Amino acid sequence: MDSLVVLVLCLSCLLLLSLWRQSSGRGKLPPGPTPLPVIGNILQIGIKDISKSLTNLSKVYGPVFTLYFGLKPIVVLHGYEAVKEALIDLGEEFSGRGIFPLAERANRGFGIVFSNGKKWKEIRRFSLMTLRNFGMGKRSIEDRVQEEARCLVEELRKTKASPCDPTFILGCAPCNVICSIIFHKRFDYKDQQFLNLMEKLNENIKILSSPWIQICNNFSPIIDYFPGTHNKLLKNVAFMKSYILEKVKEHQESMDMNNPQDFIDCFLMKMEKEKHNQPSEFTIESLENTAVDLFGAGTETTSTTLRYALLLLLKHPEVTAKVQEEIERVIGRNRSPCMQDRSHMPYTDAVVHEVQRYIDLLPTSLPHAVTCDIKFRNYLIPKGTTILISLTSVLHDNKEFPNPEMFDPHHFLDEGGNFKKSKYFMPFSAGKRICVGEALAGMELFLFLTSILQNFNLKSLVDPKNLDTTPVVNGFASVPPFYQLCFIPV
C-alpha cells in the first residue's frame, strides 16, 4: 500500500510540474494548442506526416506557434517570411542545433551535424575549407563525379535492359564520391566492405524516417530501456565508426604531411598542428563522427533524390523527352556531361530543381535551437528552445509555385524558357546551418541524371499514369515507394 501511495504522489508531482512548466512558459512563447500533461501535443500531431499537421496548425495559430513534445516546448516556423527572418536575418541567433537524443547517444555531441557552439563552428569551418581545397564546386571533385558517372552508366548497362530496382546502384554512385573525398578511394560496386557500408546507410535513412524515431526523440528514456529499431540505428553508426577508425589508422601509418590526399589526411594534419593548443576540438573521436556525418549527409540524401527523380521522369515521359532533346543538342553522344553545360541547359536545370522542390526530401529539416534569449515577432523565446522549420511550407508555397503539388519544371523557367532562380528554393535548409555539401549534391544530381539520360531511355513496367509517387515514409525524410524500371541503351 505504501508503495502505491508513493507512486501516486510521484505521478501527481510530475503532472503538477508539467502543468507549471507549460503555464509559466506560455506567456512568453508564441500561441499554440493546449498541451496535455506529460505528453504535450503529441496526440494532435500525425507522426506519419508531421508536415501536414504543421500546415493545419498554422492555419489556426499563424506562421509562428508553439507545440509541446512531452514536456519540451518547440517553436514552429511556417512559411517563407518566418523562416527567412529566423535563419537568414537572425542567422546567428537561430544557428543552434536542437535536442536530438538519439544523435546524442550516437555521437556524444561530436561531428558537424549535431554539434553546437565553438566545437560546431570550428569543425564546420575546417570541413568547408577542406572540401573547397579539394575542389568542391571546382574541377578536381567534378572529375571524381564524372568518373563515377561513367562507372554508374557501365553498371546500368550490365542490367541488359531487364527490369531492376535502382535503389542499390543509385546509392553506390554518391557513396563512392564521398569515399573518394574521405578515403581517396572508390570501391567496386561488388566489394563486400562497400556493400556493408551501403547497407547500413540505407537502413539508417529508413529507420530515421519512421514514426518510432519521432517518439524516441521526444521521450528519450525509451532509447535506453525499450527495444526497437533505434538500437539497430545505433549499432549501424557504431559499425561505421569502427570502419572509419580502421581507415584512420591506415592513414596514420602512411600519411605524407607534405601531400595530403583526402579529408582524413587533412584532419590528422590539423590534429598535429593543434596538439599544443589544448583542449582542441580536433580529436580522433571528432574525426570519426565528422566522417560519419559526411557519409550520412552525402550519400543517402543524394541517392534518395536520384531514385525519386527517375520515378518522376517515368511518370512524366514528356519531361524526359525534353531533357534528352536538350542533352542531344548541347552535349551530344561523344563526350561526358560537365558542369559548364548546365548554363546552356535551362530546361534540365529546371527539372533538377523541380525534383528537389517537389519531393521535399527533408520536410522539417533537422531541429534548430536559439543560442540566446531572443525577441522574435513580439515573442520571447528562451535560450536553448528547439525550433522546428517547415521546409515544406517554403518549397510548396502556392504563391511562389502555382499548383505546388504538381510536378512542373516551369516553376523554374521564365516566359522565355530561361532558368529562373527562386529564393524559396531551400531543399538544403538556409542560413548558417545550410548543408555543407550543397554544391557537391547539386553537381552530382546534374551529372548523374544527364549521364543516365544521355545513355538510356527509361521504360516503366506499368502505365506511367498508374505510377504512385507518394512517399512511403514522410517523417525525417521523404522516401519514394518501391518501383522497377528498364534502362534501355540509346
Rank of each mutant, 00 (worst) to 15 (best):
S3N: 13
V5Y: 13
L7M: 13
L7S: 11
V8M: 13
L11F: 13
L14V: 14
W20T: 13
Q22M: 14
Q22L: 12
S23N: 14
S23F: 15
R26Y: 14
G27C: 12
P35D: 01
I39C: 06
N41G: 04
I42F: 10
Q44F: 07
G46Q: 14
I50E: 04
S51T: 13
S51E: 09
L54P: 03
T55Y: 13
N56H: 13
Y61G: 02
F65H: 04
F65S: 03
T66C: 05
F69L: 15
F69P: 08
K72G: 05
P73R: 05
G79H: 05
V83F: 07
K84D: 06
L90A: 15
S95N: 10
R97V: 03
I99T: 14
I99M: 15
F100G: 15
F100Y: 13
R105E: 11
G109A: 07
K119Y: 15
K119P: 12
K121F: 06
E122R: 08
S127A: 09
S127Q: 06
G137C: 11
G137E: 09
K138N: 13
I141E: 01
I141T: 04
D143N: 12
V145D: 02
Q146Y: 07
E147L: 08
A149E: 00
A149V: 02
A149N: 00
R150A: 12
L152E: 01
E155K: 02
T159A: 04
T159R: 04
T159K: 06
P163E: 06
C164V: 13
D165V: 01
D165R: 00
P166G: 00
T167C: 05
F168L: 07
I169P: 02
I169A: 03
F183A: 03
R186Y: 00
D188S: 08
K190D: 13
K190W: 09
D191Q: 03
L197R: 01
L197C: 01
E199A: 12
E199Y: 10
I205R: 11
K206G: 08
L208C: 09
C216K: 14
F219L: 14
Y225M: 11
F226R: 04
F226I: 13
F226T: 06
K232Q: 09
K235F: 04
N236R: 02
I244R: 01
I244P: 00
S254A: 13
D256K: 09
D256E: 09
N258L: 09
D262I: 02
F263V: 06
I264G: 02
L268Y: 04
K270T: 10
M271V: 07
E272K: 10
K273V: 08
T283C: 12
T283N: 11
E285R: 07
S286R: 06
L287K: 00
L287V: 03
E288C: 15
A291G: 05
F295Y: 04
G296V: 12
T302Y: 01
S303E: 02
L306H: 00
Y308N: 01
Y308H: 05
L312R: 01
L314A: 08
V319I: 12
V319G: 02
A321D: 11
K322M: 09
R329M: 12
I331V: 11
I331N: 02
I331R: 01
R333C: 08
R335T: 07
S336F: 14
M339T: 07
P346H: 09
Y347P: 00
A350S: 05
E354H: 00
E354G: 01
E354N: 01
Y358S: 04
S365G: 10
L366P: 09
P367N: 10
H368G: 03
A369Q: 15
T371V: 08
I374D: 01
K375S: 09
Y379C: 05
Y379I: 05
L380V: 13
T385Q: 06
T386G: 07
I387V: 14
L388N: 03
L388F: 09
S390F: 04
L395R: 00
D397S: 11
D397R: 03
K399V: 10
F401S: 03
P402E: 15
N403R: 10
M406N: 13
H411N: 11
S422G: 10
F425T: 06
S429H: 03
C435D: 00
V436Q: 07
A439C: 08
L440Q: 01
F446V: 01
F446H: 03
L449S: 05
T450K: 01
T450Y: 00
L453Q: 00
L453V: 05
Q454Y: 02
S460Y: 01
S460G: 10
V462R: 06
N466R: 11
N466F: 13
L467R: 01
T470G: 08
T470D: 08
S478H: 14
P481F: 00
Y483W: 01
V490Q: 13
V490D: 05
